[in-house]
Simulated scan of single mutants.
Amino acid sequence: MNGSLHPPPPQQTLHGRIREDLRERIVRGVLQPNDRVPSESELMAQYGVSRITVRQALGDLQSACMIFKVAGKGSFVATPKPFQDLAQLQGFAEAMNASGHETFNQLLQLRSEPASAAVAQALALARGVPVTAIQRVRYLDRRPVSVDFTWLPQSLGSRIRRDDLATRDIFAMLETDLATPLGHADLAIDAVPAAADIAAHLDIDPGTPVLHIERLTHDRDGRPIDYEHLYCRPDQFQYRLRLHRA
């Protein structure tokens, strides 16, 4: 009789074992970015399995963007995706430049417009009052990674300089130029199919899933000052967050 109250763990599949062994080698740095992964024949001999099993393992790692294949040459370790830590209230350029990445913005729109019902509610304004609307495409290492829509109260947005929007974060301008210290932000995250205009800016097909972030940032006194909708390419960029159990 089995004295354990818990059933034994399920046995790992052969391709799962190979996948996890390779994943561990990549995570631990035994295999570095752009290193060649052992060939299918080498893995077949090492684990005593069929080619189909090896290809399943490699396919899982490729789907997870941990390796990439080069025709006629084999599989190689992928470069880790750049990421931004959502536990810190930072601008995109602030986070990426600190990691050694190149960023710049393509300004699509900077104008005054009447606040829609959603924008007015977010910024605690009356519907129809003028707000500053900003639309940008954010580039990371010369590749488009997000389309950002931002609305600011006119008292702040009217003082934003067009030339600064190509290279600087709005957060940095609010704090440094407009003497408006940031306090906290509320976020909602989901996945949505890319609309045609978003897809065109991100160089993807319409309907491709993108990460959508709705963010409302408040100043140090708790007043809402920056309302945003961000549409990000998940294949080029990550958001990360560390959670602690209460």
Rank of each mutant, 00 (worst) to 15 (best):
H201G: 09
I225A: 07
F149Q: 15
I225M: 05
L187K: 15
R223S: 05
A188S: 07
V210N: 14
A188D: 03
Q135E: 09
L174K: 07
L182I: 02
T180C: 14
I225E: 01
L140N: 04
P206M: 15
D169F: 13
R159S: 08
R161Q: 09
T208L: 11
P224A: 15
R138F: 02
P153W: 12
D169L: 07
L140I: 10
V137W: 07
E214D: 11
R168Q: 05
D219C: 13
W151M: 05
D169N: 07
I213H: 03
E175F: 00
R223P: 05
I189C: 11
V192Y: 12
R159Q: 06
A196T: 13
L202G: 10
T217W: 04
T150R: 10
L202W: 03
L165W: 02
A172K: 00
L211S: 05
T167W: 00
A166W: 03
P193L: 14
R143G: 11
D203V: 09
R159I: 01
A194I: 07
A185H: 02
E214F: 06
V145A: 11
T180V: 10
R142P: 00
D219I: 14
L187D: 14
P206H: 13
A179V: 13
D221E: 09
Q135K: 09
D203G: 07
P153C: 12
A199H: 14
G183N: 02
A179R: 15
L178Q: 04
L165Q: 07
L140M: 14
P144N: 02
D197C: 10
P153D: 14
P206S: 08
R168Y: 05
A188P: 03
L202A: 05
A199I: 15
L174M: 12
P144A: 04
T176Y: 08
H218P: 08
A196Q: 12
T176A: 09
R223W: 13
F171M: 10
P206W: 15
I204R: 00
I189D: 05
F149A: 14
D203E: 08
A200N: 02
